[in-house]
Design a binder for these strands. Sequence first.
DNA 1: ACTTTATTATGTATTTTTTACACAATAAAA
DNA 2: TTTTATTGTGTAAAAAATACATAATAAAGT
Lengths: 247, 247
Amino acid sequence: MRNSTMKSTRKTESQLVQDPVRLVESYPKVPLTVDCAVFGFQENELKVLLIRSDLALYDGLWSLLGDNVQDNEELDDAANRILKERTGMDDVYLDQVRSFSHPARHPGGRVITVAYCSLINIQHHQLKRIDNELHWHNVQSLTQMAFDHFEILTHCHKWLQKRIQEHPLGFNLLPDKFSLRELQNLYEAILNLQMDRRNFRKKFASMGLLIDVNEIENDVPHRPGKLYKFNFDKYEKNKRKWIGIDF
Amino acid sequence: MRNSTMKSTRKTESQLVQDPVRLVESYPKVPLTVDCAVFGFQENELKVLLIRSDLALYDGLWSLLGDNVQDNEELDDAANRILKERTGMDDVYLDQVRSFSHPARHPGGRVITVAYCSLINIQHHQLKRIDNELHWHNVQSLTQMAFDHFEILTHCHKWLQKRIQEHPLGFNLLPDKFSLRELQNLYEAILNLQMDRRNFRKKFASMGLLIDVNEIENDVPHRPGKLYKFNFDKYEKNKRKWIGIDF
DNA sequence: ACTTTATTATGTATTTTTTACACAATAAAA
DNA sequence: TTTTATTGTGTAAAAAATACATAATAAAGT
């Protein structure tokens, strides 16, 4: 069967698959879903957007926003579609985290899921109609969820904690204009630690990613802080450089 | 249809799915594969273990080691199985990298793949029988592969470059006993840069992960270096601390 | 108008980490 | 014995991270 000149490992024509379509038809197939951990920031807490499980088995429990991957749909497209269908939002930050494949993770049988992390601005989001089975939950206070979603959420949260120390992703969770205090509160909520205010400001100032918009907060019962916006252009241009920043 | 007390979003019994098995049976299904980028280190070069594509369309091109995910098989198990089947190796370092889902990535139709990164010791590996259609390739000199495997490999290489700066993974690619020069050559090959010898050694010494085995290299035509082995126990115990080391 | 209150804005000294850099000792090969 | 290539080692300088306190400001209350 094998070519007689052992030096060459090149296959003979008869060993090659001529019809890849038939080959793929013979492959085992599995149901595949995408589950999104949609994070938001409100009242100085990191929130995650959840929906009530529609399985009787998980009655009363919450689950991540998910759906099947459709025929010929890319995973990223599926994640974007889910976000759009559930929240009405387009153009949100989304990144693939990892897949979860434990055979018993779904009570209905073998379903593999690809977890995504999404960051959205809650204020902006609430202008759109929100499905009334959706609810924002404090990430820290969740303990139980439907399926293996608590495990997935925990993983996504850790992923975000690491990621936000390497890229300035936090801006996706804030309004267009924000004060340095809001920015710091966000980092503290995500990382679950306290930071020194002067050093935090120094760090961000040195990155040069903040644009002073010459406005100040209102609605605060004390001296208002300056407002800034994020320099997305500069970030996109120098993306590679920001890898490795941390606090 | 909706519960009349709008306050409660809890679903009524009739809205809940009672039979999850039937639900999952209705899901669309896709062929799912695992592809492994198996890295090795030899002659001061980062290598990747590839197999000739068995598709006529890709005749002469190389592909990553991959296979279908079987019914009720976990992704990690599929990756381990592939490694075992192809190389005879058990207990190798394996980590999930990410999924690739472009609808046209496979000429036979829609196939989603989950990429894994594996690190193995080539010397050790060669003691086992190696499938003679497998071949070690210099990662830097590859330009084209079957399917989207070049893209996947590039992604895995970048993943490894980042990962190795946060965890001392390099030891998986080296023999049990190695010299500091070998270790540095490895890092230089993976990261594709030159490092200062004294600072490199200082860094590793300060991590305390090297055990001096009181032996020296042989086979070198000059002053031999001391040999060390990796302190796996200490690493496992203090794993969390090593996150964040970089050169 | 004044006082109180909460918070902003800001700089420096200290410590830690990173970087740059050179020479004597050693083993093998000639 | 000499040559060769490489090992093993330390220190000074630069950069980054950390710790820390006070005056200025706007709003709210009196």
